[in-house]
């Protein structure tokens, strides 16, 4: 790791000030599990780390609050282990708690934070090898010419081919979660879905975070009767990244879908909402045929690269199985 200086502010405002004072050269240290690895590999080289672990009293970002009316307010520094262990979350949004509880391994879950998970950088092996987020060389993508078995099949018209890494984000987006961002200009609350963006040039970030802006809080409404299901295709039982995930949330009325959210992970540079599947499902009764059709629609626009054709199938199966899981039709699996 390159040398850096280190600050441990006590208030959120101090944290924002410290970050804004050195735009582009300071990084937020939360759990550190992703940031330190990136720094050791020289992929990011901040000159300053601003630790959020010293925030005091009302400024702390490690909290989980629940009200029946508004649901959850979860501080960005709440760990994945906290989420997995939260009794109230397990009752209200079991799928979220379960997703957090099977991410990575226990050592990561004990330190990795909700904010860090949502803002982690892509696992793309070109990015991690130091070829840049877009991995372009002489105007051409190394990913397209190279080994893209883990790369995007959707939203990959370029120049970004990496896949969004967070396994939590798709399920939270399906549940219409919002995030609170605090920056030098104050606080703003945006749908989590809007946190993610396609970088169009090297140096652009895949998150909508302004200079000095930090993610402080996740807001997640009550379950409100939604039927929720997820499916993760992962090769290993032990510590591994998903190859494809899908999360669905269905608002039902008289046995029919009133509103559907279908969000895929690890298949596109950002969490991928399938509007085609969502509108198809609206008004339908869910059975196997409907799940099949929705899954087909979800990958209809997929454009596999040279080595990741199989991911189209994985994404399709993930959507189908998430739908069946949400509606209790997955008994044969």
């Amino acid at each position: 790791m390159r040398p850096f200086d280190y600050a441990r502010p006590a208030t959120r405002e101090q944290a924002v000030q410290l970050l804004a004072a050195t735009p582009g050269r300071a990084a937020v240290l939360a759990g550190g599990s992703d940031l330190l690895a990136l720094m050791k590999d020289g992929v990011v080289t901040p000159e300053r780390l601003v630790s959020l672990q010293g925030l005091q009293g009302d400024h702390t970002l490690r909290f989980l609050r629940y009200t029946a009316a508004a649901g959850f307010r979860i501080g960005a520094l709440t760990t994945l282990a906290d989420l997995a262990a939260s009794e109230v979350l397990r009752l209200e949004h079991p799928v979220v708690a379960e997703t957090a509880g099977r991410l990575a391994g226990p050592q990561i879950r004990n330190v990795a934070t909700v904010g860090g998970n949502l803002c982690q950088r892509p696992r793309c092996w070109y990015f991690r090898s130091g070829f840049g987020l877009l991995a372009a060389r002489e105007g051409a993508s190394l990913v397209v010419a190279g080994d893209n078995r883990h790369h995007a099949i959707l939203g990959n018209d370029g120049p970004a081919y990496f896949v969004t890494p967070s396994t939590l984000a798709p399920v939270l987006i399906a549940l219409d979660a919002e995030v609170v961002l605090l920056g030098p200009q104050g606080e703003r609350t945006i749908p989590l879905e809007k946190l993610y963006r396609l970088p169009l040039a090297e140096g652009e970030r895949e998150h909508d975070l302004g200079p000095g802006e930090i993610l402080t809080e996740l807001q997640l409404g009550p379950a409100a009767g939604r039927q929720v299901g997820t499916w993760e295709v992962r090769q290993r039982e032990t510590l591994d990244w998903s190859l494809a995930t899908a999360a669905v949330a269905l608002e039902m009325e008289d046995g029919r879908v009133k509103r559907a959210r279908v969000v895929l992970g690890q298949v596109a540079p950002l969490p991928w909402t399938s509007r085609e599947a969502e509108s198809f499902l609206t008004g339908k009764t869910i059975d196997e045929a409907a799940a099949d059709e929705a899954a087909k629609l979800a990958v209809q626009g997929a454009k596999p690269l040279s080595k990741n054709r199989y991911k189209v199938q994985l994404a399709r199966v993930a959507v189908r199985r998430a739908l069946l899981a949400a509606t209790g039709l997955d008994r044969e699996l």
């Binding site: 379960e98 039927q227 499916w231 993760e232 992962r234 039902m252 899981a325 997955d330």
Partner: peptide
């Protein structure tokens, strides 16, 4: 209506 069934192909 919540399905708490653990997805396949994930941690056990």
């Amino acid at each position: 209506n919540k399905k708490r069934k653990k997805p396949r192909g994930t941690g056990d």
